[in-house]
Computed example of a mutant assay.
Amino acid sequence: MAYEVLKPVADVAVAHIQLLHPQCIGNSIRVHSDHNGFPDLDGVQIALVCLRENRNDRNHLGEKLTFTEIRRAFYELFPGNWNTIIADLGDIDKGETVEDTYFAVRTLSEVLIKQQIIPVFLGGSQDLVYPLYRAYDNLDQMVNLVNVDSRFDMGDSTQPIDNISYVGKIIVDQPYNLFNYSNLGYQTYFNPQEEIDLMDRLYFDAYRLGNVTASLSSVEPVMRDADIVAIDMGAIKSSELSYKYSKMPNGFDGKEICAIARYAGISDKVSCFGIFEYKNDTQEETAAMLVAQILWYFIEGVNFRASENMDIEKGNFLTYQVPIDNEVLTFYKSDKTERWWIEIPFISGLNNKLKRRTLLPCTYQEYLDACNQSIPERWFKARKKNEI
């Protein structure tokens, strides 16, 4: 059983619940504990799992991870007007090898996703995104990965995997399930030019930190198309975390990273969410509370999902056709939420990655740009990826 790898939540975190207000999250969440055993997952929509694995962190010095401070901070928050049922399934400890940990993470993720439970992971080094991605191998779908990070994390795919090269492994390792990779918040001086060029050649999406913070709403259509969303704590500026040894003067502030997490939660498509590169620190209270609030905003988003029917023939859409160059772009506007999509056509005779026509989330501004004879860049990239 995939659940056998899960260790109960530490007693000190469970005991903290007894001190909390009856309406706090800690008194409504289903907790895997030594005293009560493994929780009933019937009706659960979100499952929290902490990953103690960090051996593939390039700067690993043998330190051990604990998540008690995050749990205590999260448990003491009050829920919003939610009907979402949450479970804390405990921790996955380090396996005998890193590959053993990967196997446990992949197996658990696949089981939860098949049960339509969203796994929310707290880690650990970000190479753990690799087994999350591999969990989709048996789910018969292409995968869109969104990484909120100051770096692309492509690295050298010919070298052993680590926390800044796992995306390279995702791209080159079979089976090839990756359709799109999007980076939100990259900082140019942290990325070699060859990785920036590779992002362009593969038609992946990259959004600089300044562009995202100038218009946070631009995150929404990117998240709406994501299956996996991973946040690297290194994307957050150090002053927001009070980490003694961190060195990130630039990055997202607390309000911005929480808004990004809420956009991820609202997406009907996101089926796996993770926050990685958490560090235990003697001054970790601020960092732990920020992680707890990021979790809160993701769950808030999930609670307010629109659950739109994305079937073109059956959904309630207004259709707009825009002639541009030698193309006719087809846009759809939802009657329910007034959100916009653009169709990526299925082209017969090509080895399409997508086996049917599909909808790409977009913005109203992209529709207006198309009316002014400007092809949306994300549509162009998505079509090119489909034809590779």
Results as ranks from 00 to 15, higher is better:
4 E>K: 13
5 V>G: 02
7 K>M: 10
8 P>I: 09
17 I>C: 07
18 Q>K: 14
22 P>C: 10
22 P>D: 15
24 C>M: 09
27 N>P: 08
30 R>N: 08
31 V>C: 08
32 H>C: 07
36 N>D: 14
37 G>S: 07
39 P>H: 02
40 D>T: 14
43 G>C: 05
43 G>Y: 02
44 V>C: 06
48 L>S: 02
48 L>M: 09
49 V>L: 08
58 R>D: 09
65 L>W: 11
69 E>R: 13
72 R>D: 08
72 R>M: 15
73 A>L: 03
74 F>A: 08
78 F>P: 00
79 P>G: 06
80 G>R: 05
86 I>W: 04
87 A>N: 01
90 G>T: 11
90 G>H: 05
104 A>Y: 07
105 V>P: 04
105 V>N: 02
107 T>D: 15
114 K>S: 14
114 K>M: 13
119 P>E: 01
119 P>T: 09
128 L>P: 08
132 L>I: 12
133 Y>F: 15
135 A>W: 07
139 L>R: 10
141 Q>H: 10
148 V>E: 00
148 V>P: 00
151 R>A: 09
163 N>R: 07
165 S>W: 08
167 V>N: 08
168 G>Q: 03
170 I>F: 06
174 Q>L: 11
186 Y>F: 15
187 Q>A: 10
188 T>Y: 10
190 F>V: 06
190 F>R: 11
193 Q>M: 13
200 D>R: 12
201 R>P: 01
202 L>I: 09
202 L>G: 01
205 D>M: 11
207 Y>F: 15
209 L>K: 01
210 G>Q: 12
211 N>G: 11
212 V>I: 15
217 S>R: 01
218 S>L: 09
219 V>F: 04
219 V>M: 00
220 E>Q: 13
220 E>W: 04
221 P>M: 08
223 M>K: 03
225 D>P: 03
229 V>D: 00
232 D>G: 07
232 D>Y: 02
234 G>M: 04
237 K>Q: 13
240 E>F: 07
246 S>D: 12
247 K>D: 12
248 M>N: 12
250 N>A: 11
256 E>H: 06
258 C>G: 13
259 A>N: 12
260 I>Q: 00
262 R>D: 00
264 A>N: 03
266 I>W: 03
266 I>L: 15
272 C>Q: 14
276 F>N: 03
277 E>V: 04
278 Y>L: 10
279 K>R: 15
279 K>Q: 12
281 D>L: 04
282 T>M: 07
283 Q>E: 11
285 E>G: 10
287 A>C: 13
288 A>Q: 02
292 A>H: 05
298 F>W: 01
301 G>D: 04
312 I>K: 12
314 K>G: 06
322 V>Y: 05
326 N>L: 10
326 N>C: 10
327 E>A: 06
329 L>V: 13
331 F>A: 02
336 K>L: 13
337 T>C: 15
337 T>V: 14
338 E>Y: 15
341 W>M: 08
344 I>G: 04
345 P>W: 02
346 F>T: 11
349 G>R: 04
351 N>T: 13
351 N>P: 06
353 K>I: 10
355 K>T: 14
357 R>I: 03
362 C>Y: 02
364 Y>C: 06
364 Y>W: 10
366 E>K: 08
366 E>V: 00
367 Y>D: 03
369 D>I: 06
369 D>H: 14
369 D>T: 09
374 S>G: 04
375 I>L: 14
379 W>S: 11
381 K>T: 05
381 K>M: 12
382 A>L: 04
386 N>G: 05
